[in-house]
Amino acid sequence: MERIPILKMGPFLLVTIQVEMDDHLAMTLQDDLTDRIARTGARGVLIDISSLTLVDSFIGRMLANVAAMARVLDAATVVVGMQPAVAITLVELGLSLPGIRTALNVERGMKLLRDALAPALDGASHDAGAADL
């Protein structure tokens, strides 16, 4: 079965959506991601959707939900690389994704996460690193 890979980079999780999303894939991603956040204690999640050209209300809701779930698990979410057509569609659908941070590309998204979590990471870096290894 097709799955979207979730990569771990230090205290962050990196999700790159390279295929068109369908509802089933979205649900699987939601399960996997929450599972991984809980397991690794990640403090930030970066979702790259630059290859995503089609969204519907379900995928939009899924993105909002993933961010909300991550927040409950104490991880910040950044969505990066949204295409203009996708942004317009989401706005027209009334989904402004209020709780989600956004950035133009992965690099800036990473910087945003680092800046946002800088104080928390400084204190926690030692035990987080020890737990992962």
């Binding site: 949204m82 203009p84 942004a87 989401l90 027209e92 956004t102 950035a103």
Partner: peptide, 12 residues
């Protein structure tokens, strides 16, 4: 607001 929201979604 729509235009602003769409730009924000893209990270601007």
């Amino acid at each position: 607001i729509k235009a602003v929201t769409a730009a924000r979604l893209m990270g601007t």
